[in-house]
Simulated assay, not measured.
Amino acid sequence: MLREAIQFYDLDPATLQIEDRLHGMYHSDYHYKIRVEEKCYSARFIGKRRYEHDVFFELTDQVLAEQLDFIDHLNRHGIPFMRLQPASTSKFVTVSWKNVDYRFLLFEWIEGRHITHCTESVSFKFGEMARKFHEVALHYRCSLPKQSQFVGTKQLLALLECACSAASLTTENWDLLQNYIHLANKHINRAYAGELEFTMQSDMNPLNILWDEDENIVGIIDFEHIGYCDRVEGLAWLIKWYSRTKGLKSHEVSPALTESLLLGYRAQDFLRQEDRQRLSSLLWLTGCLNWGFVDKTKKILESKDHSQLHEHLAKFRDRGLNLSALISI
């Protein structure tokens, strides 16, 4: 599959070596570190259908081309993003494997490490980079849809409500879920009032950021999620990720790390009181009404044993309280 693909790049397939298969298989995609003619590349096969649900916009060829144009814009303005290796006749090529079509993209390899246990220094430096990214992106224009995360949030809530209605629940479990849904609606109403300021952003979670040994950011490596995002919504996701002291699998978050990120971002330049109120509720939604929560809840409701529901909801209620408290209003 790789030998066939790299022929479109005027590279010698006989010199191909697979150095590593990265991250396993996500979204029906494949990602490899390869070496060809003594140079390393990031090689990605992107499927046509990447999600089982339609909360996120479809990654069509046109969308992919727009995202790659934006990557060029970022690199021209000093953001250390992935650098595309264009094919002979286009930015990317389509290859088939076992009757499935994939878009194949080749990027220069960026050497670096992930930092998932954040410190005040890491959060501050990331805040500086995120602000620079947003400033470079703020006036960029393309035809990608300007769609608030409000749309996806409402779809996730509808999935949760549908699963609740279809399940055979005791009165106690029904009340627990309805109270959670009521709380989610409360945060949605607080989070999406007023005008939105759109900017472009990628998925900048810690697994998509590369650092050198001196804790300098040397690469941002996600492009498939590039799209318009309301600036405050985007900031909420960044706070969620870079306030964690014990890694991505932990729900422990730190107000001190949040302040460090906001200081590095220079959030005081534009963050109004009403924005801080939005941020508090947006943080709740990022942690407590995301796909992971909804998917786990659906699986519990679809099983015959609902005994896990109380503990599951209680855990996410506590998580929501901690996330909301990261922003002083």
Rank of each mutant, 00 (worst) to 15 (best):
R272C: 05
M200C: 08
N290Q: 11
L207D: 07
S96L: 11
I110M: 14
L210I: 03
C118T: 12
H53D: 15
H310S: 08
A236I: 10
S148A: 10
F8E: 06
L321K: 15
F81G: 09
T15Y: 06
C164D: 06
Q149C: 05
L279C: 03
N216Y: 07
L282C: 05
I209P: 00
H117A: 10
L74Q: 09
H306L: 01
K33R: 15
Y265L: 13
H23T: 11
L238W: 06
T258M: 09
S202T: 15
N99G: 09
E128N: 06
M129Q: 10
E215N: 12
S280E: 11
A158I: 10
S254W: 04
L157Q: 08
L235N: 04
L263V: 06
Q155N: 09
R190P: 07
A158Q: 15
K249L: 14
G320E: 10
T258R: 06
R231P: 03
G127M: 03
F45P: 03
L177G: 04
R276A: 13
G78F: 14
I18Q: 02
M1L: 13
L183R: 12
I239T: 07
I300W: 06
D222N: 05
W211F: 11
F56M: 07
E135H: 07
S281M: 02
M1F: 09
T258H: 01
I209Q: 00
A166M: 14
I226C: 06
L323W: 02
G219K: 00
F70D: 02
N173V: 06
T94Y: 05
I221F: 01
H53I: 09
H77K: 13
H27I: 00
R131H: 13
R113S: 15
K154A: 08
I300D: 01
A163M: 03
G24I: 00
W211Y: 08
F198Q: 02
A130I: 03
N179P: 03
A267E: 07
G78W: 12
L105I: 14
F8C: 04
L323T: 03
D275E: 09
H73K: 15
D295K: 09
R113M: 13
G292W: 08
K315S: 15
D203C: 07
L59S: 06
L64H: 08
F107Y: 15
G24L: 01
N185F: 07
Q147E: 15
D72G: 11
F104V: 09
A236C: 09
E302L: 08
I110Q: 12
E111M: 02
S324W: 08
N205T: 01
L271G: 04
Q277F: 02
H225A: 12
E4K: 15
I329A: 13
I239L: 14
L160P: 09
R266L: 12
T119A: 07
S307M: 05
L59K: 03
F8V: 04
L207I: 05
L289P: 00
A236G: 10
S280H: 10
E259I: 00
S42E: 01
Q7S: 14
I327M: 14
S303Q: 08
Q155S: 07
L68E: 08
I327S: 06
D10C: 10
L11K: 11
N290I: 08
C164L: 10
F223M: 08
E161H: 04
K98P: 00
L74F: 15
